[in-house]
Design a protein around this nucleic acid. Structure first.
Lengths: 325, 325
DNA sequence: CTGTTAGCGCCTTCAT
DNA sequence: ATGAAGGCGCTAACAG
């Protein structure tokens, strides 16, 4: 039994000849180890931490909720996950939070701001033997083991294509509202969006990005200004959260029929917006998928099992009124 | 132990007072049963059958492949699944195949033609104690326990909205190619499609459905005729498989820039079509999700565990060039 | 109606 | 470098 176990998991301490014989026998009997038994027998359990924005928006809350829903599943696999709140928008605070985790967890998933000090903190975690997964927003230069989230450039391009095609040949301006350009995911979406609008829709002009910090009131004011100043506004793209504010100004202006509006994430507000025709499409990344993927990846890393990259890819989904889930 | 087990699974033979005490204790200690241990201890194993179309298209093959990929997962849960090929388009043959399964499996997933004799065969299976799940195409009047697949009316509506908005205000005809109107999923898609085109896009006229039996050559001929006879064709919707044929005729005509074309399912051909601009969007249902969902549902039914309806809902996904997975 | 017991297949520790 | 043995937490058969 013990030797089989060693061969199965590539652990040292087996003569090569013995290992070969074991493998042959495995093949001959088509032996397949039972993961249920393995989970049961495993003594040591893995601890994971999810570092999430404090007071996060509905999307972040959905991820946290999904993580909690996995408790029983994790428990059966000798693992557990807890959520830690941090000021994700403040590099120093986030870095400090991450540093405080060194050596205390087997794995950490973090919604990370791409900043020098955060990158260093991630690298310290990795150096200390903790597996790190970036969630929703990546930190490419770091030593993180994996990124769970969508291709944000592709998401931006998708939004651009949809607006470009939905305006139906009209020409005019397209407004872009973001939370902050220093958030990597927002910056990437804007990049992809502008790329498509500029290259593929010569009749459209993407206006400079305005930033509302993902807050409803700020976005409402920014949108109102945009609508007032741009009589030929034909499209509007909200890159981040704070969609309720944009929706409100757009509805107040009464120009929803003339302005194609695309936002991110499915919430009660965007859902209602789609049904009422205020929103034309929503770009979605499934928070449940992301949470489950992060957990699966952390577990695979902890157990030194391979990751099925294909299965862990998060899709950029398009939701319109007709295919609302 | 045994009494706990009985309470946990709602089995008979426990005095109500005892059951209450057990539940209280469970709450007090926040006891959570380990599914790994349960899987391990379960002696009896469940057998499932997947009845799939013989020589099915790429989409069906992808489902079968995903079922096979689940073998290890199922094995760890004391269950197994095998695939059975049947002539799904022939009601009598399909019904006969289903009848031959009575009493031999714990669960059956079937890609079903909605026909009287098939419905009867499904009901016989259910009467014999087999759990039945319809896959991809439903048989609503039957006693099947669950349907795994998309809302095909919604899929048709989505295709309609996309074409309507993508034509950019032009008016003209929209062609509809289907496999067969006697396939429930095709009929439902056509219904949803026509509904949207007729009600929401007064400038567009949906032509009568032409049927090509999901075969490439037939679809190619039908599409060629459509293009020749309708100089003002602005949109084209292929409801079923056989997209390569439609693509070929459309490319040959050189009118791809003027005709918005939407089809179903992601294959090498539709993928290439999107990249080349021949196809404007593809409506997708993830075959891997469907296979895994069917298996999870069958397993839950066999174990008399609740089904998480929310998680098992299959989405109607929209794929464009920019969000190709 | 309730309690006892023998595994399920693996991981881990300890002995050889 | 290999082997032996004790659980892990449950299910199912059986005893009381």
């Amino acid at each position: 039994m013990a030797t089989l176990d060693r061969v199965l998991h590539g652990r040292a301490g087996v003569r090569e000849d013995t290992a070969r014989r074991v493998r042959e026998t495995i093949d001959r009997f088509e032996f397949r180890p039972s993961s249920a038994a393995a989970d049961l027998a495993r003594r040591r359990s893995s601890r994971f931490a999810f570092v999430m924005p404090e007071g996060g928006n509905l999307f972040m809350q959905a991820i946290s909720a999904a993580v909690e829903d996995m408790a029983a599943w994790l428990n059966a696999r000798r693992a557990s996950a807890e959520t830690i709140r941090a000021d994700v928008f403040n590099p120093a605070a986030l870095a400090a939070t991450l540093e405080s985790l060194v050596g205390r967890y087997d794995g950490v998933a973090v919604v990370a701001l791409d900043h020098q000090s955060v990158r260093a903190a991630i690298d310290d975690l990795v150096a200390g033997g903790t597996h790190v997964v970036t969630l929703v927003s990546d930190v490419p230069g770091s030593r993180r083991h994996h990124y769970v989230g969508i291709d944000n450039v592709a998401a931006g391009r998708t939004a651009g294509s949809l607006i470009g095609r939905f305006v139906g040949g009209r020409s005019g301006k397209v407004g872009v509202v973001a939370g902050s350009r220093s958030l990597r995911d927002h910056a990437e979406r804007v990049f992809g969006f502008n790329q498509v609008i500029n290259l593929e829709f010569p009749g459209l002009t993407a206006l400079g990005v305005v930033e509302g910090g993902d807050r409803d009131e700020a976005n409402e004011a920014l949108t109102a200004r945009l609508l007032a100043e741009q009589p030929d506004l034909v499209g509007l793209y909200n890159v981040g959260a704070g969609t309720p504010g944009v929706v409100k100004s757009l509805a107040d202006s009464g120009r929803e029929a003339d302005v194609v509006f695309i936002a991110h994430d499915l919430t009660p507000v965007t859902r209602r917006g789609l049904l009422r025709g205020l929103l034309d499409a929503v770009i979605v990344q499934d928070p449940g998928h992301e949470a489950r993927s992060a957990i699966r990846v952390l577990l695979s890393l902890a157990r030194r099992e391979p990751i099925l990259a294909e299965q862990e890819k998060i899709r950029v989904e398009i939701v319109m009124r007709d295919n609302l889930p």
